[in-house]
Amino acid sequence: MKDIAAEMYAMLNETKIAFTVPIFGGIPIPSSVAVTWGIMAVIVLFCIIFVRGFKLMPGRMQTAIEMFVGWIYDFFTGILGEKGRKYIPYLGTVLIYIGCANIVGLFGLIPPTKDLNVTAGLAIMSIVLVEAAGIRSKGTRGWLRSFKKPMAVMVPFNILEIVIKPLSLCMRLFGNVLGAFVIMELIKAVVPAIVPLPFSFYFDIFDGLLQAYVFVFLTSLYISEAMDED
């Protein structure tokens, strides 16, 4: 038991360095960043290959991509309304990225979302986007005034919410991935073959995609709340 704990501790507590870029005296690249680059390269290459040849009369691949993008637009437009259309590409990017990042565990890579830095970064960007949307929609004065709603007593809580929202987003994603990882490690320690497979499908595919969905869903909900003029 002790060695599993020690192993896990070692896996979780150190920042794995994939390689070091030999400029400025060596910039270490964490493995999560390296995997992220791989995911980015795959996604962008996929887009370039399949989207470049788009025609008015769609083929099968084009129909699938169009349906996917159309679904993203419909989904976010349903939450944000017409005026939130400009935020949809970012939310779609995050959805695709988190989805791919969670699935990547299937291919034997370490999901980047298991790095707290990645989920925290995503959450911080989300809260920046939410507040920016609030400022853009209401103006700085209206945005500041929105802190004392519904009454002035709520000001500290509303300010606290700026911290709580991204913390909750970050911890939900990270906790899910970490929990999945720990449970998978424990299962693998007990039964190394076959049994982990369905669990792997559940945690990597279902839970991973669900968490990506929930992450962008909550972000868009916060944005729509921030844009709401009441």
Binding site: T36, T93, D115, N117
Partner: peptide, 20 residues
């Protein structure tokens, strides 16, 4: 290394906006 995340997501966002 949280900075990497910002950079990666923004780059991915720009690329996907252009290509997807």
């Amino acid at each position: 290394s949280i900075i990497w995340t910002f950079v990666n997501i923004i780059v991915l966002f720009l690329l996907l906006r252009i290509f997807l």
